[in-house]
Structure formats: structure tokens, C-alpha cells
């Protein structure tokens, strides 16, 4: 235990050092360039504080997070259902595999533009566009999970007649957890980046919209301030929600 916490604090020390060096390098680079092109950490920090004080930072991050959350839940639900079905039923997989490959390779931009054209510049279109981008990845990951289900345990469930619901809850879902968590991890990273593009192209609020406007005004300081703030929020979700969740789910492992 002691050893572990010691290792943890050296790990933290290294991370802190690495961030300090990065900021210092940024400062040095900024002092050699046009402050309009690359503002230093001080200026970006001031922009961040100002945006925080007038509330626009929190409003826009909140709106973007809500879109991330909605499209994420939608993509995880539909993607998991499709993935598990494809993993369990060989015939379904044979038929739908080419569709999956098509959707996996469609550029995000194409899906977003088509959604806006077909559904209008609406909130629903934005969220569906993001979800469609993510669904194929979730499906592919969960398909692996569906294929790898332990047959011995499924047989046990059937002999003991525990029923569909208990089989799903106690036998199948726990086996899919690592795949599900994998999809969540890569999903979070992918979804928020796509949400920014969707906001840039067709929404009047959110981090993507702010970055788009800042681009028009050549305001690099705002672009960096919002980007860094959002990265910090996503990291916090990882540390405060995902990791504790995963630890709890993995309690049974030796």
C-alpha cells in the first residue's frame, strides 16, 4: 500500500514537471513571436479569467457538454445494441458488415453536412450527426465483446433457467464491461471533437461556435483559452467519473 502511494506521488510529480516544462516552452516560443499569432500563457490566462468572470466560458462549455452527453448516450445505446447483435448472430454480421465498413469510413464532415441539409440547422440534426459518427466505432468494439462471450457461462444460465433478464444482467453485461469501457474512453475523446465541428458549422452557441467566431476575428487567445478549458473538463470527467467507475466494476478481479 505504502509503496503504491509512493509510486503514485512520484508519478504525479513527473506529470507536474512535464506540464511546467510545456508552459515554459510555450512562454519562450511566445516571446519570440507576434503576440497576435501566439499569445503567451499570461495573456491566454487573462482571457480565460475574463471569459470566466462574464460567465460566457461556463455557459458555452455547459452547452457543449450537454451536446456531448446527449450524442454520447445515443451513440453508446444504439452502437452497443447493434454491436452485440452482430457479435451474436453470424448471419446478421455477414449481411451488415459492409454497411459498417461504409459508415466507419465516411468522413465526419460529410455526415455532419448531410444531416444539416436533410434535417435542417437544428439541435436534433447536430446531435444525430455526432451520434452517427460514433455509432460504428461502438458497434465494432461491442461486436468483439459479443463474440467473446463465455459459452460455458451461458450454458450454465440456460440449465439453471435464470431467465433473460438475469442472464443479461449477471452473465452477459459484466463480460461486456471492458469492451463498453473501451468504447466509452475512445468515445469521449472522439465525440467532443466532433461536437466542436458541428457547432462551428451550424450552431449559434457552444465552444465550437466561440472558436469559430474567434477565428473570424483572428483572436488566437480566445481559441487557446477555450480549448484548454475544455481539455481540462474532459480530463476531469475521466478522473472523477470514468476511473472510479472502472475501479468499482473491476473489484472482483484478483
Amino acid at each position: 500500500m505504502k509503496k503504491q502511494s509512493a509510486r503514485r506521488s512520484t508519478h504525479l510529480a513527473w506529470s507536474a514537471l512535464s506540464i511546467v516544462v510545456l508552459v515554459a516552452a510555450w512562454q519562450v516560443a511566445a516571446s519570440f513571436s507576434d503576440p497576435r499569432l501566439l499569445p503567451g500563457p499570461g495573456r491566454v490566462g487573462a482571457t480565460l479569467v475574463a471569459a470566466g468572470l462574464d460567465g460566457s466560458l461556463f455557459t458555452n462549455i455547459g452547452i457543449t457538454l450537454a451536446r456531448v452527453f446527449a450524442s454520447f448516450v445515443l451513440a453508446m445505446t444504439i452502437g452497443s445494441a447493434i454491436g452485440i447483435a452482430l457479435g451474436r448472430v453470424v448471419l446478421l454480421n455477414r449481411f451488415f458488415d459492409p454497411w459498417l465498413i461504409l459508415f466507419l469510413n465516411l468522413p465526419a464532415l460529410v455526415i455532419i453536412i448531410l444531416c444539416y441539409i436533410w434535417l435542417g440547422l437544428t439541435e436534433v440534426a447536430a446531435i444525430i450527426a455526432v451520434a452517427i459518427n460514433k455509432i460504428p466505432n461502438v458497434a465494432v468494439t461491442l461486436r468483439e465483446g459479443g463474440r467473446a462471450l463465455d459459452r460455458d457461462l451461458l450454458e450454465m444460465a440456460s440449465v439453471y433457467r435464470i431467465g433473460r433478464w438475469r442472464t443479461l444482467r449477471h452473465v452477459i453485461l459484466p463480460q461486456l464491461t471492458p469492451y463498453f469501457m473501451g468504447a466509452v474512453r475512445s468515445g469521449l475523446a472522439l465525440v467532443w471533437k466532433i461536437v466542436l465541428v458541428v457547432e462551428l458549422l451550424g450552431r449559434g452557441s457552444g465552444v465550437g461556435f466561440v472558436i469559430g467566431s474567434a477565428f473570424q476575428l483572428f483572436d488566437v487567445s480566445t481559441i487557446l483559452a477555450y480549448a484548454l478549458a475544455f481539455v481540462a473538463v474532459i480530463q476531469m470527467i475521466e478522473f472523477l467519473i470514468l476511473q472510479p467507475c472502472e475501479r468499482r466494476l473491476n473489484r472482483w478481479r484478483r
Binding site: 460455458d152 457461462l153 450454465m156 440449465v159 435464470i162 438475469r166 449477471h170 459484466p174 472482483w252 478481479r253
Partner: peptide, 22 residues
């Protein structure tokens, strides 16, 4: 009741939960 050649217990459920399953 079927006692299989290998125990076939759910590793992610406790002993009691395994027995309660059916």
C-alpha cells in the same frame, strides 16, 4: 442441478450471489 466439469461460477459475483442466481 448440473455440476459441470469446471465450476462455471460467475467471477464478478460473490459466492452468495452465485448461489442466489437461480
Amino acid at each position: 442441478g448440473y455440476v459441470f466439469q469446471t465450476p462455471r461460477l460467475l467471477p464478478w459475483r460473490t459466492v452468495l450471489e452465485n448461489i442466489l442466481l437461480p
